[in-house]
Nucleic acid binder design. Sequence first.
DNA 1: GGGCAGAAGATGTCTAGACAGGTCTGTCAT
DNA 2: ATGACAGACCTGTCTAGACATCTTCTGCCC
Lengths: 246, 246
Amino acid sequence: MTTSMSTEPTPRYQEIAEYLRRLIAASQPGDRLPSEAELCDRFGVSRMTVRQALSVLANEHLLIRRRGEGTFAAPRVVARLLGSPLSFTESMRRRGLRASSRLLHAGWIEPSVEDRAALHLPLGSRAVVVERLRLADERPMAIERVVTPPSCAGILDQDLEHGSLHDAFERLGRIPTRAQARVSARRATDIERRLLGLDPDGVLLSERRTIDDQEGTPIEHTETLYAAERYEFEAVLQRGADAELT
Amino acid sequence: MTTSMSTEPTPRYQEIAEYLRRLIAASQPGDRLPSEAELCDRFGVSRMTVRQALSVLANEHLLIRRRGEGTFAAPRVVARLLGSPLSFTESMRRRGLRASSRLLHAGWIEPSVEDRAALHLPLGSRAVVVERLRLADERPMAIERVVTPPSCAGILDQDLEHGSLHDAFERLGRIPTRAQARVSARRATDIERRLLGLDPDGVLLSERRTIDDQEGTPIEHTETLYAAERYEFEAVLQRGADAELT
DNA sequence: GGGCAGAAGATGTCTAGACAGGTCTGTCAT
DNA sequence: ATGACAGACCTGTCTAGACATCTTCTGCCC
């Protein structure tokens, strides 16, 4: 049994994980997923290989395993690690969804007081704004408004419909290094409801964050308004040997 | 009868993980850890068992594995929330507010499916619940519902009106060490509105979290409902050498 | 000394089983 | 009807290997 796949072989467990991601994306939360034995048969692999795929997805909270019962699609859409460098695109892909954007507006503005403070802009300075509607499988997930200082105006020349904004920053030599975020919630306005396709009781999760580059210079002040009924934040906290305060 | 979490012995891979946790705690970030082969010898188990222990810790970002090189203590924590959700009391104190509680309910319950999964409870096991209204300078801020396993029932004997629940855990020898949290938002119900003193459009920030003790055993599964108009989460992320998560 | 090939050592992927323990269902005896 | 129990099914834990791939070190040759 020579396994002679020498041309960049994707591990079997990743194939199985991909299959399950799609299955979960097409399932209702709580739906039963194939048992380990069924997956062994379907993919012709041993049980440990199937279990490796399942443990990857369990760690991402995409499925829940209950001994004696079975494996089930995880409740709800969990989105992104709070403050994580994971892009919107990448976190959607892990959930078997295809991310895209619709550019709402891009150009120069007079920054608000909050924008100025976050980006350390002098009074009278202008700023660059990019507003996009973020979609997952064509379904609106969030409204994003990014404000950057004049020194980053180069991003206006990049592909804002398909590319990642963070990649655009890196091409300009500015590496996103440190982020501060604040998360709050409020009811949606009429305009926001229409853009996101929410019902009249629609609630928004707001993430306002500031990102610094490798030199500690602020390069981005962003507010992202997520449809709360379809999006959650996730955070992992480790209490280390440091009770360090601010 | 308090008891009995389970009659089964601790799995070998958890023993090994515990050994490694202590080793990592005593190491500098980047230090080399024992190789898989060394761990196999030391504990007299097969390689897959050692790998299971290692993958648990890798998922917690406590160590980093590099193919061909070895396994190393992880370089620092990836993300930390300020005003840490590890303790309401502590986060209020940092904001210069005095935290207090009004006990709504405390006792034994039949845990929900989600509670059971989060706390690794067997079917039929009961659980302890504590529901409190959390106040900051006498102003209602959040409704908190804590579910803990029978092994932590001792917290029922503690002062739940004034003391910190986490201090109570530590007095039981269970040190809250790691937390996973998910943050979402929704409208408040009538009861919640009344408890928190919200207006009819009131929105809640919901934080559902699970906390593990120093041995990785879940000790708390909590949902906290914050008055969104008076509360925000803050997070700070420092990007280290974490280009390789997954 | 410099360069290169190979050995050694490390993790990654995978097999084909085994037994244990939790959950559910249907049947049989009460 | 109801309760007890057996069996089917499912995930959890673990073994004792195998080959692949990647990195680093070593020693030989030029």
